[in-house]
Write a protein that binds this DNA or RNA. Structure first.
Length: 420
DNA sequence: TCTGGGGTCCTAGGACCC
DNA sequence: TCTGGGGTCCTAGGACCC
């Protein structure tokens, strides 16, 4: 039985969270600001109606609008994380095929509803509202990309009343006609510009292209996107939460940093925070990345950006060792005479800390194993139905797996693969 | 004078997402 | 004066190896 996908997305999530415990804020324009109260990261519908844009710098909003009457909140991630968990718990009751995609979105795999999808999803929506106070919109379609599209209209169009069901790729066509390339999941302005230059100026036109041809020009990601628009699922439901692949701690500075000592302190702080996050997840790292740059919003100022990754010969979760490595990197990247605006530390090549303690972590082998794990996950999702065989008999395992993974549908003969 | 082919690993950076 | 933070995936190129 075909599994189809619902995308449930919380409306104006952070702004809605602020409202849950302060009902008097309902009906008023609310915005939530980023760290340092730098820019707008969430808006209620009323704030959107005032023309406040996502990501707009708060100081520009203030210049532009009389801010009297606009409710402004600094972000409160502890609250949003907690509300998110509550919403996800409710959603997970509706299906065993559940993927929490982001703090405010989840994909649900649904099968066997036999045309009763819409009442089912309306019930879901009402339950979330009743039990958490958060309004959600629901899009339903044969693929994730189309579910995203359906969700967009479910949210925007009053006639949908929060739910839009698309039975197949064909019923998506009218909606493809009514949006822009950049409204599609995976198309931002750069790709949209490249597509337009080729004469593909609308989502409908993109859906009408030849997927293989598009792969040649744009790569495997575009091929998947086109197929998904045509109703062919290429992006699977990830029902088990994947392990983190990187952990980042970065900040923009409140004021420019010109002193190396000051930068060293900042870097040490980021390392400590990232390492703490990592230990909480019982992980260790074998690769540390450091970056810093000047203020990109002031092109008239001297610009400098640099980053470097260092491979640690042993995976570790020890803050002191990581700090030493990071300061070492900083020594190589630092240039006097610049005003730095931002810096960050990323921990990569994460492995279970237990493996390190038991001496099981072998760096030379880790990429290969990662590839194997990914391929096996994909095959499990495919339940052995895949049809593409390993065309690489006799080549190395990693190469074969890599080719397999580049296939848009991740299909490999699992028995052959496991025999490799 | 000619100047392989296939593969791994590392690094850097682009593009996109929320 | 004032422009977030945390992620993922993919590609390309160079060093190196056989």
């Amino acid at each position: 039985m075909a599994v189809r996908v619902a995308l449930v997305d919380c409306n104006n999530f952070y702004a809605s969270c602020e409202r849950v415990f302060q009902p008097h804020l309902r009906g008023k324009p609310i915005i939530v600001l980023s760290n340092n109260d730098g820019c707008v990261i969430a808006r209620s519908n009323e704030a959107k109606a005032l023309g406040i844009a996502m990501g707009e710098p708060w100081h520009l909003v203030r210049e532009r609008l009389p801010t009297k009457g606009i409710i402004v909140r600094s972000s409160n991630y502890a609250l949003y994380g907690d509300m998110s968990a509550r919403v996800m718990q409710v959603l997970a009751r509706f299906t065993p095929l559940f993927e929490a995609y982001s703090i405010d979105e989840a994909f649900l795999g649904l099968a066997g509803l036999g045309g009763r999808e819409e009442p089912h999803l309306r019930e879901l929506r009402a339950t979330v509202a009743r039990e958490t106070g958060i309004p959600v919109s629901v899009g339903f379609a044969p693929t994730k990309t189309l579910a995203k599209l359906a969700n967009r209209f479910a949210k925007k169009e009053a006639a949908c009343d929060g739910v839009l069901v698309l039975d197949g790729a064909y019923s998506a066509l009218p909606y493809l006609d009514r949006c822009e390339l950049t409204d599609l999941w995976g198309i931002s302005h750069r790709l949209a510009a490249r597509l337009s230059a080729m004469g593909i100026v609308s989502p409908r036109a993109l859906a009408g292209t030849d997927a293989r041809h598009m792969r040649e020009r744009f790569g495997v990601v575009m091929e998947r996107l086109v197929l998904e628009l045509q109703g062919v699922p290429c992006i699977g439901l990830e029902d088990a939460p994947a392990d983190r692949k990187s952990i980042l701690c970065s900040r923009s500075f409140g004021r420019m940093v010109t002193d190396r000592r000051e930068m060293e302190e900042a870097v040490a702080t980021y390392v400590a925070r990232a390492a703490e996050k990592m230990r909480r997840q019982n992980l260790a790292t074998a690769q540390l990345h450091l970056f810093l740059h000047t203020n990109r919003f002031r092109p008239a100022d001297p610009q400098y950006a640099a980053s470097r990754t260092i491979a640690l010969n042993v995976a570790t979760a020890d803050t002191m060792r990581l700090t030493t490595a990071a300061l070492d990197l900083l020594g190589g990247l630092w240039r006097d005479g610049y005003a730095y605006k931002k810096a960050g530390v990323m921990l990569l090549e994460l492995v279970p800390a237990r493996q390190v303690q038991q001496g099981l972590f072998d760096k030379a082998d880790s990429n290969r194993r990662k590839a194997l794990m990914t391929a096996i996950d994909a095959i499990n999702r495919d339940h052995g139905r895949g049809t593409v065989t390993l065309a690489a008999a006799g080549r190395t395992q990693a190469w074969a797996l890599k080719s397999a993974m580049r296939s848009p549908r991740f299909t490999t003969r699992w028995d052959e693969l496991l025999a490799v």
